[in-house]
Design a binder for these strands. Structure first.
Lengths: 228, 228
DNA sequence: TTCTGATTCAAACGTACATTTCAAACACCT
DNA sequence: AGGTGTTTGAAATGTACGTTTGAATCAGAA
């Protein structure tokens, strides 16, 4: 079963686990190479630097996930009928779960890494992500906008980021939560279970009625475009 | 105006800003003491260690917030009529905003710190938090349970943690989000604005109908257990 | 085999970190 | 003023980090 893996592969496998568990900055190359059973210098030999290793770890999943999401988004945009929010969010499920083909527990690991990327590093990974895949997410914004025509663009912006936070934080602390859930409620919940629990939560949240109690002067937003 | 501050106070003020901005592990005592314009050794003299400094920074807010929340929860629990979810969540607003009395931008800083505490450190801060203030949060769980009697306890557990993720992640990246929001939508949003936007989002999310959808993965084989 | 480029290895480099040390400076008492 | 306990200061300690180095080892072609 355990075929002979290249050094690069062993590094990536060890790195993703440690990165997901401990975060990027709090995982040392020595931990990684020790777990991977390779020489310390091989990381810099094969990847150049720790920063590039982090990107390589993420890219392994992103190059699979993002084209897949793009394809789903494009399909939904092409269908003339308006899609409801639940349908839009549901298209995430299959592409995300297919990351388990990239690596065992790939879905969980990727989402944890995504969470780490948003909270650990200062801007750098956020830029990398938006720069490479921003156009795909623009389609998602468009779809949600169509599904929730009554939602002002500014409100939608915030709610999408709220939702990103929900997902990312949940995955970052997924292990601890799953443990508690099993201990307290006798419910064994895997990553698919969490995703399926997230869907109705996020659907209801994003489509929630807009609050009427606003202490701030309510100026009509003119500019659209999620750019940046 | 700028009265003479004690060394301890200067350290706490510098530390909370840097911790909120960069995270606990990625902020060095040298940065803190440099910003506070005190000697490096004074941190260990006054607080013992970096870990204890982190706790002291958090405690300054927790000792104000948690009794305040406890009081609100108790009040709501005492009222015989059942409270709806929106009412329950609303009790967070005032206690949170009163943290601005503890320090300028105290609400934002505290929530950012809370986010850092949940994602940065390994369990340690989570334990500290649950150990000291777990009983207060139990009352919140009870209130939400009363407001959403149809929600199974297991589902409620997950949704409360989803909500924690929403808040915590939003605050961790609050500065970046607020900047984008202002640039793209011409909306100046302060911490109060974010909190008020969160309320309807979270109310709808927690009270969302429970999904009837079952996992698409085949139920027969349990290969690739997600545990560990 | 011998040559050659790619990979691995042990060791070291320079930097930054939290923490400790101990003498100097300070504040507050009588 | 002198004495005492508290606080600050500059410097050093030991550890860990990412990265670099140069020799040893390997794989494949001639």
């Amino acid at each position: 079963m355990t075929s002979k893996l290249s050094t690069q592969h062993k590094i990536l496998d060890a790195a993703q686990s440690l990165f997901a568990e401990t975060g990027f900055n709090d995982t040392s190359l020595r931990q990684i190479t020790s777990l991977a059973e390779v020489n310390l210098a091989s990381v810099n030999y094969h990847f150049g630097s720790k920063k590039e290793l982090i990107q390589a770890v993420l890219q392994r999943y992103l190059v699979v996930l993002m084209p897949r999401l793009d394809q789903e988004f494009t399909r939904l945009l092409a269908s003339q009928q308006a899609n409801n929010l639940s349908q839009v969010l549901s298209v995430f499920v299959k592409p995300l779960l297919e990351l388990n083909k990239v690596h065992q527990n790939g879905t969980r690991i990727f989402l944890q890494l995504l969470g780490r990327g948003y909270t650990d590093v200062q801007g750098h990974l956020r830029w990398f992500f938006n720069h490479n895949y921003g156009r795909v997410l623009d389609k998602l914004v468009l779809l949600v906008q169509q599904a929730c025509p009554d939602l002002p663009p500014g409100e939608l912006f915030w709610r999408l980021h709220f939702s990103l936070g929900t997902v990312v934080f949940t995955m970052a602390s997924n292990e601890a939560l799953a443990e508690i859930a099993e201990a307290d409620f006798n419910e064994k919940v895997d990553i698919e279970g969490v995703i399926l629990r997230l869907l109705p939560y996020l659907s209801a949240a994003i489509a929630a009625p807009v609050s009427t109690v606003t202490p701030i002067s309510h100026t009509a937003p003119l500019l659209a475009g999620e750019g940046r």
